[in-house]
């Protein structure tokens, strides 16, 4: 079955012209790549563009892909590099931050307040909405080095060794960055630790 094949095998199949193999790869990784980029950049519209660009590069670079390379390492290296480039451009433009107020008034709310929500009780919905805002704010407050390491470890479940391959630094450096990221987030999200324990 094609759906049970490894990413690398599917990529080789796509190299040979089997579009269905790419379709399966896209289905497997689209959501994780999108959320990685979204949490890294903090902007939905840009995240959509970068998701599209990431897979476009996979498509165009399919000929150059070697079976020996782990597909997810290649995929997230592309996504991460796009995020880094985008961040540099944004800094140059002095783009508004995600957690900055949308209007001039400080109480106008932020982009995080318009995150979509699923069906749930309104009080829980409100709590989660606040959690999302705080979590995204805390992640956004991390340095880029710490943020990317934290997102890859916690959102993509990548081992430190693979993160080191993607980021291009030694594994110990990755662990060090992770340590700082966890420490900062622990302080920022301290008030939610009981919530996480309470909810099954």
């Amino acid at each position: 079955m094609l759906t049970q094949e490894a990413d690398e095998d599917l990529m080789v199949r796509y190299q040979q012209g089997e579009v269905r193999a790419f379709e399966i790869l896209l289905g497997r990784h689209r959501k994780s790549v999108y959320n990685f980029v979204l949490r890294y950049i903090g902007d939905k519209e840009t995240a959509e563009d970068l998701l599209q660009e990431t897979f476009m590069r996979v498509i165009k670079g399919a000929d150059a892909y070697k079976r020996q390379a782990k597909f997810t390492t290649w995929l997230y290296t592309i996504a991460r590099n796009l995020c880094v480039d985008q961040t540099r451009r944004r800094k140059h433009r002095k783009h508004a931050s995600l957690d900055a107020p949308m209007a001039a008034a400080d109480d106008s709310g932020t982009l995080l307040d318009v995150l979509p929500s699923n069906e749930m009780a309104s009080d829980r919905k409100t709590v989660n909405k606040e959690l999302y805002r705080r979590l995204q704010g805390a992640i956004g407050a991390l340095s880029e080095e710490q943020r990317e390491v934290f997102l890859m470890r916690e959102f993509l479940d990548m081992p430190f060794k693979q993160i080191a391959d993607v980021v291009g630094v030694p594994e110990n450096t990755v662990k060090s960055r992770m340590r700082y990221a966890l420490e900062k987030l622990r302080l920022d999200l301290d008030e939610y630790k009981d919530l996480a324990k309470a909810v099954p």
Partner: peptide, 17 residues
């Protein structure tokens, strides 16, 4: 921290493209 992140993700923090 990991618990908070996991909770948030369970509750729909992750989004569909």
């Amino acid at each position: 921290v990991r618990a908070v992140v996991a909770h948030a993700r369970r509750e729909g923090f992750d989004e569909e493209p």
